[in-house]
């Protein structure tokens, strides 16, 4: 168990380094290859020589990438010093650097935005799990019935609709025409009721998409599991149908669902870009979209790292959960 954990964590570390390296490459190497001076991308409208020089110094563009990478990770674990314009600024750990655009420290931005996205992802996940599992199980058990058809038609529609289009339609109908819910985001700390009202539509939009996928997967897995020998055995033993389904079939069905859930929640931490944009939710997705447009590398790195970490951690938790759900799986 311990060696397993260590091995996993080591793999995680390697992966995070690679991801950061990839981001570095995108923003420093690709412009170089295609003939753009990266400094001009960050200097904004002011192409003055001194300003360019200042940018080079600040971004350490003349240093090799690996050194920059090392500095970056050093900052996260022990903090780092920024030298520039005759001053030294110490940035304590965990230091993700300062925004190229407004000099704001990145770490507080991340911690400020993370909960917003987390609530969005978790709330939606809860909703889509319930809906997806329910629809999927009912469809599988009543295969071929009207419920199965209805459920699967809905699910197919769900996976075929772009989430922002669903969002826009929901907004127009429920927020503007009917005025049932709030159409804008209110911070949790400000007014919980308003926050909830503002989050309903984003949750539903996301849950519609993911719930549809989960329903399809649940149904497929369930059908397969029901055909397995051990289910037949259980039935033959005279167990109640409820027990057969609830205890045996569901367990096996949950395994792939859990895997997906891990990946999805993790991915949503950085991938709710479309939903956050559609509903103007000030989460990580929106921050990173803005950062990409402004080429604010430290912020992009920060969000990317958080997202990747979230995916990895979610996967780890899922792996550990397997052992609980499916006794056949032993970690090692």
């Amino acid at each position: 168990m311990l060696t397993y954990l260590i091995r996993r964590l080591l793999a995680v570390a390697v992966m995070l380094v690679v991801i950061v390296l990839a981001v570095f490459c995108i923003f420093f190497l690709i412009p170089k290859w295609t003939g753009t001076d990266p400094a001009t991308m960050y200097v904004g409208k002011q192409a003055d020589k001194e300003a360019l020089e200042g940018v080079r110094e600040k971004l350490q563009l003349d240093e090799p990438i690996l050194l920059q990478l090392f500095e970056f990770f050093k900052g996260i674990f022990v903090g780092r010093d920024y030298v520039g314009g005759g001053t030294v600024t110490h940035c304590p750990a965990p230091c993700f650097g300062y925004s190229f655009r407004n000099e704001q420290a990145i770490w507080p931005v991340l911690t400020d935005r993370l909960p917003v996205t987390l609530y969005l992802a978790l709330g939606a996940a809860l909703l889509w799990l319930v809906i997806g599992l329910a629809v999927g199980v009912v469809s599988a058990l009543k295969r071929g019935s009207i419920w199965d058809r209805l459920g699967m038609t809905g699910a197919l529609a769900g996976v075929s609709l772009p989430v922002y289009f669903t969002g826009l339609i929901l907004l127009t109908v429920f927020a503007y025409q009917l005025g049932l819910v709030s159409n804008s985001f209110t911070p949790f700390g400000e007014n919980v009721g308003k926050w909830f009202s503002g989050m309903i539509l984003p949750w539903i939009s996301l849950a519609f998409l993911f719930g549809a996928m989960y329903a399809r997967i649940t149904r497929a897995t369930m059908l397969e599991v029901m055909g397995e020998d051990y289910i037949r055995t259980a039935r033959a033993k005279g167990l109640k149908e409820q027990t057969v389904i609830g205890k045996h079939a569901m367990r096996s069905t949950m395994t792939p669902i859990l895997t997906l859930l891990g990946i999805d929640i993790g991915a949503l931490m950085g991938g709710a870009i479309l939903t956050e944009t559609t509903f103007s939710i000030p989460g990580l997705g929106q921050a990173v979209l803005k950062a990409i447009n402004e080429r604010d590398l430290p912020l992009i790195l920060g969000v990317t790292l958080i997202t990747a970490t979230a995916v990895v951690i979610a996967n780890l938790i899922v792996d550990l959960l397997y052992g609980v759900i499916d006794p056949r799986v032993r970690l090692g």
Partner: peptide, 19 residues
């Protein structure tokens, strides 16, 4: 590793730096 990559984020980043 690629499956765990924040894909949309990477795609947007890549496109935004293309000449």
């Amino acid at each position: 590793m690629l499956l765990a990559f924040p894909q949309l984020l990477f795609i947007i980043s890549l496109i935004s730096v293309m000449p």
